[in-house]
């Protein structure tokens, strides 16, 4: 195995200043190896969402080092972080975050458009991603014409269409019923089985059970000595 995909050292994130400052992360260390399947668990306010947002380059840490695929993200500007999000990261949100009034296919194509992929190839790859999540027959439906589970599967298709180094999922089953949750977790399992690195946040033990490894975050740090 070569260098880890994610290497986080002494990561800190503080919101606000002075007396009202909230320390979401207080010196967190984490290493995720290539091909890993990691579940992050923790109580509300433990900082796990903040961690995942920083891992996804949606937010920047107050201090600490974050190496993504061996690259130190602190040296990156706004534009380069955009490229990083586009090429290396696939992010799945709890609330799906599809663009409304836009077809499933167009939503999945979106990262490829910003990556500068040509139309024909884009269409082909987006359809392949939709086929992978079993929604190629719903390609021209709009988000409001799809069920929650279907919307989340479209969001997963969008996350993996650029063939990213890691797929990050923030409570991907949080808004879904049991049946849809199983579908979504099945897809993530298959992604990991085909070699993709997957990191997800969850509250639910049976979702965490899909992962190879579980990390608990308590008060902005990784709790020590908890077996997977």
């Amino acid at each position: 195995m070569n260098a880890p995909v994610i290497e986080v050292r002494d990561l800190r994130k503080t919101y606000g200043t002075g007396d009202t400052a909230v320390h979401a992360l207080r010196g967190l260390d984490l290493t995720v190896a290539r091909g890993d399947y990691l579940a992050i668990m923790g109580a509300s306010g433990s900082g796990k969402s903040t961690l995942l947002n920083i891992l996804g380059c949606l937010d920047i840490p107050s201090s600490g080092r974050y190496l993504l695929d061996g690259i130190d993200t602190a040296e990156f500007g706004e534009a380069q972080l955009g490229i990083l999000r586009n090429r290396k990261i696939g992010f799945v949100f709890q609330s799906f975050n599809l663009i409304p009034r836009t077809s499933a296919l167009a939503n999945v194509e979106l990262p490829l458009v910003y990556a500068g992929v040509r139309r024909a190839e884009r269409r082909e790859r987006a359809m392949a991603a939709l086929r992978l999540v079993g929604l190629d027959d719903r390609a021209h439906h709009r988000p409001n014409e799809l069920s929650g589970g279907q919307q989340q599967r479209v969001a997963i298709a969008r996350a993996l269409v650029t063939a990213p180094a890691i797929v990050l999922a923030d409570e991907p089953t949080g808004n879904l019923d049991t049946r849809s949750s199983q579908d979504v977790m099945g897809i993530l399992d298959r992604l990991n089985a085909s070699g993709r690195t997957v990191v997800l946040i969850t509250h639910e033990d049976d979702v965490a059970a899909h992962a190879d490894r579980v990390v608990r975050v308590v008060d902005g740090r990784v709790a020590q000595g908890v077996p997977a």
Binding site: G82, N86, L110
Partner: peptide, 16 residues
């Protein structure tokens, strides 16, 4: 603004 956030999250540049 949310849509702008989604677009940025999947890698849209500010210029785009």
């Amino acid at each position: 603004i949310r849509e702008i956030g989604i677009r940025k999250a999947v890698g849209a540049r500010r210029g785009a």
